[in-house]
Design a protein around this nucleic acid. Structure first.
Length: 130
DNA sequence: AGCTTGACCGACC
DNA sequence: TGGTCGGCCAAGC
């Protein structure tokens, strides 16, 4: 095998299907298979795949998240995406995802943020892949 | 080759 | 309850 002609184009080692890195495909596939009413944290996804870290998962979602139910992948603290909270919240209410009200059950006490955005009840809605 | 940033996480105060 | 610090992994400049 006479030289490899330097193969200038190294990398691109995607599954061969295209411009989508394998890791990204894994993340998207997993995101799609998350059942309604359930959520996973970035760290969980990374741990489930056994590769990369939470940040890499976040990157993939940021780039290709538009093709999957991005609202089912959230941060470890249960906070929703800034700017898309309302959109995600609408999906949660529709899917019946366990939510946790900021404080207070019952009659709200005056001091409260103008919006009272509920957060996802992670311990309850967390999906481990089973 | 090195530095900065990012849809992050966990520990600590 | 919430803000800060360090660590992790990859991409962009």
């Amino acid at each position: 095998m006479p030289q490899v002609t330097d193969g200038g184009n190294d990398s691109v080692n995607d599954g061969g299907d295209g411009a989508l890195p394998v890791f990204a495909e894994q993340v998207l596939d997993l995101a799609e298979r998350i059942p309604p009413g359930r959520v996973m944290t970035y760290g969980d996804v990374a741990e489930y795949l056994g590769e990369g870290g939470p940040r890499q998962v976040g990157r993939v979602m940021a780039l290709y998240g538009g093709a999957v139910p991005w609202w089912r992948v959230i941060r470890a603290d249960g906070a929703l995406l800034p700017g898309s909270e309302q959109r995600a919240l609408a999906h949660y209410r529709d899917e019946g995802t366990p939510l946790r009200t900021p404080r207070g059950r019952g009659p709200a006490r005056g001091s409260q943020a103008a919006e009272d955005l509920p957060r996802v009840d992670l311990p309850l809605a967390r999906w481990d892949g089973r």
